[in-house]
Simulated scan of single mutants.
Amino acid sequence: MDDVRDDDVIHRDDFIRLDGVEKVFEVRRKTGFLRRERREVRAVDGLSFGVARGEMVGYIGPNGAGKSTTIKMLTGILTPSGGRLRVAGIDPSRERTRLARRIGVVFGQRTTLWWDLPLIDSYRLAHRMYRIPDARYRANLDRCVELLELGALLDVPVRQLSLGQRMRGDIAAALLHDPEVLYLDEPTIGLDVVSKAKVRGFLRELNTERGTTVLLTTHDLQDIEQLCSRVMVIDHGRLMYDGPLAGLHEVGESERTLVVDLERELPPIDAPAPARVVRVEGPRQWLAFPASASAAGLVAAIAAAYPLVDLSVREPDIEAVIAKMYAERAGA
């Protein structure tokens, strides 16, 4: 017990734990005919947080904020420049092979599947690579194939799959060995509405039934709203917010937009406060209201008083919310 640090005891319930983690990259830039300038880019800057076993946590921020760098350190692909990081008590960069059996990773913009082989061959390779017991492999494969609707795709070369089909195939591949934690980096990017719904439903069931810990990075707020009870916001490598999504909207004072199509052109809608009309174009009107508020009451009030053709709710731009938070912090 002599080698157990205080923070090991304090955070023993965290399945994932980062304490003051940093990642610095050295960048060389040409400044003259024979001259190059060397500078450091701090992608992750003193990051500290914990994720309990079985949690589903959204990890969001603008492009270049440090999200993917964090995921790569958590998987052992990158080594931290400073601080301390543990996943299931394991240092990922030192024991990457040991950790690989306990984690699953899906990168939305790149695949782990074999491009020229049928989808089923990638699964057979994972079976051998992870040394998954035969019965467990067949059970997990059957379950993934059924829930992700992959049956008709198993003999199709990966290069012939659509983006949505490939994404579902990647998620299945990441889960065949029953990982305890699943890292998802933009898992619904470029997917149609139907494919997104299938992926979200599967992830929700996975977390509920098996208690799989999920860390999700995404630009799609609906992913967060439908899957995660907790969200962390990172910008410039620093944690800016950690809490419920509603709290993020309150902090960033973000707004949702209700787009209303009326039967004919009318004066601006007399909307109940705090909603307000922000734009009118013919029979279409745009109303802004706090993102932390429910749209149900506003929709009901408008439907009762105006001739509706259609309406839709647009989510706030998360990058704008974070940019505002960052600007306010910088000016504080």
Rank of each mutant, 00 (worst) to 15 (best):
V106S: 05
R143C: 06
M56P: 00
S292K: 07
D2V: 14
G108T: 12
A296E: 13
T218V: 12
L150V: 12
E315D: 15
G331L: 14
R53Q: 15
P283I: 00
L141R: 13
L227Q: 10
I10F: 06
A320P: 00
L206P: 05
V181E: 00
M56H: 02
A304Y: 01
Y306S: 07
V280G: 00
G32I: 06
L18T: 07
L161H: 02
I224Q: 09
S68A: 04
Y130L: 11
E40V: 10
D13N: 14
A52T: 07
G50K: 11
T111V: 11
V199N: 07
Q222P: 00
E255I: 01
K23N: 03
A304Q: 14
V44S: 07
F107R: 03
L298E: 04
P157C: 12
I318V: 15
A273N: 06
R204Q: 14
G211N: 13
P62A: 11
D2W: 04
L221R: 06
E146M: 07
L147M: 13
V105Q: 06
R96D: 07
R128C: 02
F289D: 00
A293H: 14
F49T: 13
T70N: 05
E186G: 04
M129H: 13
A273L: 13
T213I: 12
I189Q: 05
L258Q: 01
R102N: 10
V313Q: 10
E180C: 07
L153H: 08
D235M: 04
V321L: 03
V233F: 09
N63F: 10
G282M: 02
L175Q: 10
L113N: 12
L239E: 01
E209V: 15
A135G: 13
P283W: 00
A88E: 13
R12F: 05
P267H: 05
G282A: 04
V233I: 15
E281A: 00
R279I: 00
R53H: 14
